[in-house]
């Protein structure tokens, strides 16, 4: 049984690799069209074109770092891990928000790669944007487990938070968010409403809402139930299409809204009611 599953997965992967390589174009060099601006220093927005050598495995970040190292050291860029884990190198590549370290030049069409700062983030310099507001929205949804029954001060009373694998699967994918801001940049509502928390923050609200260790359900709903809150999402799906980690923020937002609208069963509420009934019956006896 296990071998059959492994075989199936391998054949699917081979098929996908074949499809992917079919789309790749092998070039020896590309022209990077880099957005340059430093309004603080009086430098007006313009594009600099730099030709860089590339291999099949060259990422846009590799190409940018080559340009920075050998052609123009003044290019402003933020990056860190180079392996799609830190979420620092988000930028618009050929008009779509992507991670520069996760985008191979060979996957892109044309011999010119246009790199611009992420839209909807305040611009600092060249490809660098300010994430303060984005992190503030994330902070506002209280992204941590809240449980008033857990006495973390008294070590003797400490007990485990029991959680089954099924309970874990309900929120695990949303906890893979690396806060790269690509979803925030792609969202059409964020583009017109600065107070809208954005897909990242709202999906994190769902991540903790559905976590069975958390019991701040009412508080979490009150935070997102605002005229600039969850109701302003119109399911354009752009956040999920650009997410590099499969978090699928649009899914989290719609599921949270489903709970708020009563489309979905609120398992926590049911468990709470069952607990109260059980306690009432015990008290009667």
């Amino acid at each position: 049984m296990t071998e059959q599953v492994i075989e199936k997965i391998e054949s699917m992967e081979k098929k996908r690799e074949k499809e992917k390589h079919g789309k790749e174009t092998i070039r020896s060099s590309v022209v990077l069209k880099i957005y340059r601006a430093n309004k603080r220093a009086g430098e007006q927005p313009h594009y600099d074109s730099v030709e860089v050598p590339v291999q099949r495995w060259t990422t846009v970040l590799d190409a940018l770092l080559h340009a920075k190292q050998y052609k123009d050291p003044s290019i402003g860029i933020r990056y860190s891990c180079r392996m799609a884990s830190c979420g620092s190198c988000g930028m618009k590549i050929n008009g779509i928000p992507r991670l520069a370290c996760y985008t191979k030049v060979s996957e892109l069409e044309g011999s010119t790669v246009t790199v611009e700062p992420l839209a909807n983030f305040p611009h600092i310099r060249d490809l660098v944007t300010d994430f303060a507001q984005f992190f503030s929205h994330h902070h506002d949804v209280k992204p941590f487990v809240q449980n008033e029954n857990a006495d973390i001060k008294d070590k003797n009373k400490l007990s485990e938070f029991m959680q089954s694998p099924e309970d874990l699967d309900k929120f695990l994918q949303f906890s893979y968010c690396i806060k790269c801001g690509l979803c925030y940049s792609a969202c059409p509502t964020v583009a017109t409403d600065t107070k809208f928390p954005g897909p990242q923050a709202l999906s994190q609200a769902y991540r903790y809402f559905i976590d069975n260790r958390d019991n701040a359900t009412k508080d979490r709903i009150n935070i997102v139930d605002d005229k600039h809150g969850i109701w302003r999402c119109h399911f354009a799906g752009s956040c999920s299409s650009v997410c590099p980690k499969g978090v699928d923020p649009a899914l989290g937002i719609q599921l949270l809204r489903g709970h708020m609208l009563g489309f979905s069963k609120n398992e926590k509420k049911i468990a709470d009611l069952q607990d109260r009934l059980r306690k009432d019956e015990e008290a009667k006896q």
């Binding site: 996908r16 699967d169 309900k170 929120f171 695990l172 994918q173 949303f174 893979y176 399911f235 799906g237 999920s240 299409s241 997410c243 590099p244 980690k245 499969g246 978090v247 699928d248 649009a250 899914l251 989290g252 719609q254 599921l255 949270l256 809204r257 489903g258 709970h259 609208l261 489309f263 979905s264």
Partner: peptide
Amino acid sequence: HGGKGLGKPGRPDYPYDAVS
């Protein structure tokens, strides 16, 4: 908008296609 017809959350794997 009510979360219907979107699929269920799971464990994302490469190439991370969004279920919604």
